[in-house]
């Protein structure tokens, strides 16, 4: 057993999840491939969304993969960082908007 939870080399082994359940893995990877293909959104736009989401879900594998992918698609460093700020703003906003719930409850309890 490795002594860290995350190993960068594991990213390349993503496809190996099929070893334990091939059918579902195939369905997932087919779906994944289709999601990231050019569509109503460009592959470049999708890659940038993925980079932001990777930060929101704090997935080191996804950050690794989509930093490379966005660079390869010609996304600038400023655009990449702005995408991370979008993730941060949504996460921060998600906490803060619950402040209204807290206020509602506090007002209900207090005179």
């Amino acid at each position: 057993m490795q002594n860290t939870y995350y190993n960068p080399a594991d990213l390349k082994k993503f496809g190996d999840i099929a070893e334990f359940q091939p059918e579902l893995a195939k369905k997932f990877f087919d779906y994944y491939g289709q999601v990231f293909a050019e569509g109503a959104l460009t592959a470049r736009e999708k890659s940038l969304i993925a980079l932001a989401v990777a930060h929101a879900v704090q997935c080191p594998y996804c950050i690794d993969a989509y930093t490379t992918d966005t660079l390869e698609k010609g996304v600038t460093e400023e655009q990449m960082m702005e995408a991370v700020h979008v993730a941060a703003a949504i996460r921060g906003g998600a906490s803060l908007v619950h402040g209204v719930q807290m206020m509602n409850k506090a007002k209900a309890l207090t005179m």
Binding site: T42, A43, R44, T68, L71, E72, K73, G74
Partner: peptide, 18 residues
């Protein structure tokens, strides 16, 4: 265009339009 680092170039048509 060639990448300024250890990554591959993206699709030629989309980089050309950028």
């Amino acid at each position: 265009y060639n990448p300024a680092g250890a990554f591959f170039p993206g699709p030629q048509a989309s980089l050309e339009s950028d």
